[in-house]
Amino acid sequence: MTGFVIVLALFLISAILVALFRLHTLVEVIRGKKDERSGNSNKVNAALMVVFLVTSFVLLIWYSVKEFDNYNLPVASEHGVTTDQLFWWTMVITGVVFIITQILLFWFPFKYQFSEKRKALFYPDNTKLEIIWTVVPAIALAGLVLYGLLVWNKVMQPAPKDAEVIEVMGYQFAWKVRYPGKDKELGGYDYRLIDAVNAFGMNFNDRASFDDFSPRELHLPKGRPVEIKIRARDVLHSFYLPHFRVKMDAVPGMPTRFAFTPTKTTEEMRAETGNPDFNYELACTEICGRGHFSMRLIVVVHEPEEYDKWYAEQESWLSKNPDYLSKVPSDMKELAMVKANIAQ
């Protein structure tokens, strides 16, 4: 239905345009105009400039206000609040420039449309003006750069020592997550050890691997710094958590990282958005093949105590795939069974 209305509107607009230009051709013919330079089309176009300016500003403001809650994604991380502030400050500064320059751009043509009676002002240059409008933008931009640098350096800081470390791996076309287990240390991996079951290529010569676990969803504690270790197995992917303002490419052969602190649990966000089915999501933002648009993983943020409880309950990867005990060197088997919590 909306589609139909829009088509109709566009059709009408074109019809009006055609009619306008036809009409004034007629007028010109009747008046016997000879000089194209001062023709009516000049007036029509000049007027349309102003019409366009006003209409588009009205639409712009109306839509931006009406849809604000839709496009302004609620934020759920500490640094996200500061990057959002930077975003909106940039919006204010560029917005002012946008409004002033666009108004002038359409107003001048209307105001100074051709007239036989007038002569344009011969005004080839003015060094003072040029300096002013080099220096003023330079100052404004310097401000934005400084502000940006402060925020950027803070966001990119190494995570504190006690951060929760979680590994996320992208592959065609899904994500896998791995937690370090009770020893809080991720085991080593090697891509040559990857097979249909051992998707991470976990290396069982490394004792840190024994208690690692791999749940279906990404679970995070509220209020604690987390450091995500990001990698990819086949092609580039990109780890994107829209509500947390987190994005980092997943690169085969070059692990990357992103540290942040979630500030709202899934439950809290459900209350805030008034949507009982709300879920945080992980998406891929680097083209990776036919399934690029479907690389979704649910992210769950818990209260810290709840998170610890959940963490303690997880079964190790090894205990779920006991066949891989055979890959453990014989002198570590016992340790592995203890750490992985496998009954003798």
Partner: peptide, 17 residues
């Protein structure tokens, strides 16, 4: 700078569309 210069070129012109 380029944008401001365009705007100033339009200013007090005798504009033919």
């Amino acid at each position: 700078v380029k944008v401001f210069n365009y705007l100033t070129t339009l200013w007090k012109g005798n504009i033919v569309f």
